[in-house]
Design a protein around this nucleic acid. Structure first.
Length: 426
RNA sequence: GGAGAGGUGGCUGAGUGGUCGAAAGCGGCGGUCUUGAAAACCGUUGAGCCGUAAGGCUCCCAGGGUUCGAAUCCCUGCCUCUCCGCCA
């Protein structure tokens, strides 16, 4: 959520900045609602003040043993009048916050202009696309040939966009997960957390998935109204919801491994082959809660932490800066890491690292106590995948494939593979 | 699943219809004393909204209700704890 004060004081400037990302702000409606809200709020508060002082007077009179009947007569009707105003105000406020909750974040000034994915500039490239003396197979061919990756079984068990893995390949995914968690906790100073995979609507509002993107989520149908998490960002960032952190606790760095569930509504026909786009996938997430002055440094740092994983796995990748037209709803700035996939002869997103500034913190009321002012102020939140495990598995399979269809184990994963150095048909 | 007890400020905890945003203690901050520290003593110490300010308003788990007036009474929900049952 944007700062309502900013919207009041600088509506046109906000509107212009949002136009960069292709969002049209309905300034007229906003202004009208805001004016009405203010008028009604003042009236309501005046009535409340009157009720309070009258009631206090009645209390005193009663204590003094006076007859309060005439005083009661005076306040007749005041209650109803107040109730009506309060209801009017509540309605207006609901409408206003509803509108506010649907406004995306303002892109940072350093975010390049652009309309969509094709306008994202490449910031840097690491490694060279892996060369093979033959036409590289994709992970589907590799995995099925090895007899360790099965989409048919998954569609029988559930439906499309799921997979079953077996044997060393299943273990390889676990190895990737362990390696990532170990690296982030040991080398990068993150604290590992285990969190629920089902969350309530408040959490999703906090990080910005609700109210706008309900159709992307799986929702439970039982008595409890819960959602399957689309990313660990939701439960992990919401750990700070409604709390005030002390300055010496910052920065807070969390990492978590969770499955992620996405309905992928609207992506019919996209990436239908393989495990690039699944309803369920594993991800290791990095989250930082930082003082506002630190968030852009933290973004660079966190992006570097995610890159470390790719480098240690010796996977070629590049970093792109999302342009103003491609950036996500809650983010002020985002870097995507794209890994080289020989099977597609393309770079594909494997991590997305964003600074949300105070956008999520305001929705969550996640604050810190600024020692300079002594007052609670909003935190900044930064997060990124470190990395998407499913896609990392795809990348390892495709980049480490050998002519005979076997897959070598990257050196850094060998300690996690129990002596397996090459995945072969078993 | 059955029975019961609760949810109050950073923490412990008092408050069961009126001047209560809320006693007391702890913790925090500032000071006195001290070479320094501790102890003791004094003061101070929740969050948000409107307002230049004075001041006003809201918040005692959440949402409804009763009342001139609700932290306090009633209803619903959520959460926590205890006992029994069941269970990974």
């Amino acid at each position: 959520m944007l700062d309502p004060k900013l919207l009041r004081s600088d509506l046109d400037a906000v509107s212009q900045q949002l136009a960069r990302r292709g969002f049209t702000l309905d300034t007229g409606t906003l202004q009208t609602l805001e004016e009405r809200r203010k008028a009604i709020q003042v009236e309501t508060q005046e009535l409340q003040a009157e009720r309070n002082s009258r009631s206090k007077g009645i209390g005193k009179a009663k204590a003094a043993g006076e007859d309060i009947a005439p005083l009661l007569k005076e306040v007749e009707g005041l209650g109803d009048q107040l109730k009506a105003k309060e209801q009017e105000l509540a309605l207006l406020q609901d409408e206003l916050t509803g509108l506010l909750m649907g406004i995306p974040n303002i892109p940072h000034e350093s975010v390049p202009a652009g309309k969509g994915e094709e306008d994202n500039p490449v910031l840097r490239t690491w490694g060279e696309p892996t060369a093979f003396g033959y036409e590289a197979r994709d992970h589907v061919a590799l995995g099925e040939q090895l007899g360790q990756l099965d989409f048919e079984a998954a569609s029988r068990l559930t439906g499309s966009r799921f997979c079953v893995m077996q044997g060393p390949l299943a273990r390889l995914q676990r190895a990737l997960t362990q390696f990532m968690l170990d690296t982030h906790t040991r080398d990068h100073g993150y604290r590992e957390v285990y969190v629920p995979y089902l969350v309530n609507a408040d959490s999703l509002r906090g990080t910005g998935q609700l109210p706008k993107f309900e159709e992307d989520l799986f929702r439970t149908s039982g008595e409890a109204d819960y959602y399957l998490i689309p990313t660990a960002e939701v439960p992990v960032t919401n750990l700070a919801r409604g709390s005030i952190l002390e300055a010496d606790q910052l920065p807070v760095r969390y990492t978590a491994h969770t499955p992620c569930f996405r309905s992928e509504a609207g992506s019919y026909g996209k990436d239908t082959r393989g495990m690039i786009r699944q309803h369920q996938f594993e991800k290791v997430e990095l989250v930082q809660l930082v003082a506002p002055g630190q968030s852009y440094d933290a973004l660079e740092q966190l992006t570097g932490h995610a890159e470390t994983i790719l480098q240690q796995l010796q996977l070629p990748y590049r970093v792109v800066t999302l342009c103003s037209g491609d950036i996500g709803f809650s983010a002020a700035k985002t870097y995507d890491l794209e890994v080289w996939l020989p099977g597609q002869q393309k770079y594909r997103e494997i991590s997305s690292c964003s600074n949300f500034e105070a956008f999520q913190a305001r929705r969550m009321q996640a604050r810190w106590r600024n020692p300079e002012t002594g007052k609670p102020e909003l935190l900044h939140t930064v997060n990124g995948s470190g990395l998407a495990v499913g896609r990392a598995l795809v990348a390892v399979m495709e980049n480490y494939q050998q002519a005979d269809g076997s897959i070598q184990i990257p050196d850094v994963l060998k300690p996690y593979m129990g002596g397996i150095e090459v995945i072969e048909k078993t």
